[in-house]
Design a binder for these strands. Sequence first.
DNA 1: CTTAAAACTTAGAAGCGCCCCT
DNA 2: AGGGGCGCTTCTAAGTTTTAAG
Length: 823
Amino acid sequence: MSRRASAVASKSLKEASDSEDVERDDSDEFEDSNDDDNEPIANLKGKKKASPAKSAQSKEEVTTDDEDDAPIAASKKRPSSAASNGSTSGAPASKKIAKSEKKNDLEPEEDDDSDDDEPIAKKAKKKEAVKKEPIKKEVIKKESAGTKRKAESDDAPSKKKKAAVKASPKKVKKEDGEEGEGDEDDEEEYEWWVNGLQDGGEKWKTMSHNGPVFPPAYVPHGIKMKYNGVPIALEPDSEEVATFFAGVVGTDYEKNKTFVANFFKDFLTVLSREKKPSPIKEFAKCDFSPIVDYLNELKEQRKSKTKEEKAAIKKEKEELDEKYGWAIFDGRKEKVGNFRIEPPGLFRGRGDHPKTGTLKLRVQPEQVTINIGKEAPIPPAPAGHKWGAVVHDNTVAWLATWKENVNDNIKYVLMAATSSLKGQSDMKKFEKARELKKHIDKIRRDYTEGLKDKVMATRQLCTALYFIDRLALRAGNEKGEDEADTVGCCSLRFEHVTLEPPNKVIFDFLGKDSIRYYNEVAVDEQVFKNIKIFKREPKKEGDMLFDRLNTSILNKDLTRHMPGLSAKVFRTFNASYTFQKELLDTPADGTAAEKVLAYNRANRQVAILCNHQRAVSKGHGAQMEKIQDRFRGMKYERGLIKKAMLEVDPKLKKKRPELAEDESDVDEEFIERHLAAQEEKEKQARVKALEKENEKRKAEGQPPLKSLDTKKKNVTPLESLSIEKLEKKLDDMTKRIENLKLQMIDKDENKTTALGTSKINYIDPRISVAWALKHDVDLDKIFNRSLREKFKWAIMSVKDGVSVFSIFLDLRVLTTWVKDWEF
DNA sequence: CTTAAAACTTAGAAGCGCCCCT
DNA sequence: AGGGGCGCTTCTAAGTTTTAAG
């Protein structure tokens, strides 16, 4: 029955609003978007006065779809929600049960081909030989073995593909002149960005790699855990699991009931496979501390490794990286990302995850599917094993894949962020976001109009889009019973949104990674009204706020405005736009440090917009105080320098009155404390020096000293310095103070905000490059090495623009391309 | 269509190594 | 010359979107 509802819902917005004839009120228009300034509006301002004359009645009379009142997903998983509507179809998720029943089976999934022993890979090959048609991929489904896929790269490329090949970007010599020099790695750089982006279908013609790396086999340590005070010898498999748990002792996981319960259940299962019945029955009687101690010991050992040992380990790792860290795409060596198969362990689900603590099993090669070029040698599976399957699918980006047992998620080995494959999709992402700029006005007019639509589904869609556009919320897919209860825009529930008249909406919910989103927002009058309607009786806690909306309806509707448009594009768009706008605050004549601070601030605004948070590090408060003290200490020192200057050259008093001014933040109380601390420090230094001296003397067979000569460090009194020297000192100190001050501001503002995520994923790197050029800031002040590598395409494209044009034009023009973000 | 699987991006935390500052 | 903080890397979970299956 939800069918009809969604049929209406997916009816185009336009159509829906055309057909309605509810009175219009132009004052209701989306005012914040002033026509020629189509920026994202990150901070919602309170809307103008409510128009009281409006007949609340006609406005709020929203039709639900015909006689069928059922919200889309009528039967709901969250408690209490199912009853929300008289006519809801019941039958909750009976489907899910079958699935979860099968779950929690710790046996590694057997690839029991039962009546057919032939490896799928082989079969696939046979079939391939026969196939001639350009089939993108074909899936061979095995009854019990899960799905195995076989794919074919097209032997005879279609016309379209040929065209793509022809237009394929040229190879370019690296421009920094170290031609042909020794390292064969990079004598040629693949500058895919020079010829623009290719169409997405085919990712390579030839491709090879050395396969994934498996974690080392478990080596038993033989340490006995205790049960009821009695040491228990464990067989290797159980010992390994016990050791996993020992690894979380002392962390929050240890206290997490779900974690412990899940762990223990699986632990018992593993124990039950021991040859003799294990006495272990209750978690409460388990004592893992011997193993914990052992792990700590290991840690100590690792720390105290000699240089040589460390170097050897490092070398080993490098060799592994060298061998497995690369793939060859169309003859080019490119970096692989996560080439290591995830090791077994206890699943560390975030937030209130029902499966946290569940044993994540060791992955066997038989579960792994390899994707590689047809002509490339297939990397050997570990000795005594074979691959689950080998495919040759050049339409996907993964090199290997397997299914993980805890949540049945599919895992992939993918290329590194620095690879051209990822680089291209990254650039595409930002190009799409820039494209959105061309449509955003229309889209905003549209959804603003739709806020008043009389079809409920349309109103909900438009209201949701309003939030996504303005608040950069995530789309919000539905989640299952066995995942943490988190939401995004479409999955918001009754309790996540509160209204506060006249026009405030308060969001309070857990989003991705169970990060809390809290925001009080002044919204348009119509939005306020809509939320009120969406929350109307009989809805209550647990019910969907947008009961006629989900992400696929939303995204589908978005494509009508622009091909490829989806909810996440708004986040990218909003983030990059906000960033660029905030960058306008860069002090053009500031120091490099000040500019970088401005940059970080802009970055921070984006992070705040996207709600990128991090835990406050435990020492933050103390650290802050320490810096504060250091800061004031420096100011005090500067005061002394100034005083000395005036003493040395009294005439300065007239010429430089600022020298006579007191330093701020430095009061008697502080000076006292500061001096005392200094005194204490010196004392300690003396004690230390004495200890050291005595050790030396001991070694030399001399009697220890009671104290060191009070060889008063010959501190040159400031007053005896030349005025030039003092001047220099003053300068240095002032610089140090300024730097520290900036650092402090940065640090404090950063304590709960994580800048990295937005920098890596949301902010168009070309904006940063253009900014750095314009303000003459060294790029590595804002991009670390990996970022510079990842964003090479951006750096090169913007720089190229510069080298061509800057000869004639002012640097500012060089940010031409950035135009679409509108500097 | 609706639902599920597949594919790929985005996310915070943990771990580490290096460097700065005593 | 020691160690603690910090920036960076690694790890893998948790999202979104696209594609395939039913």
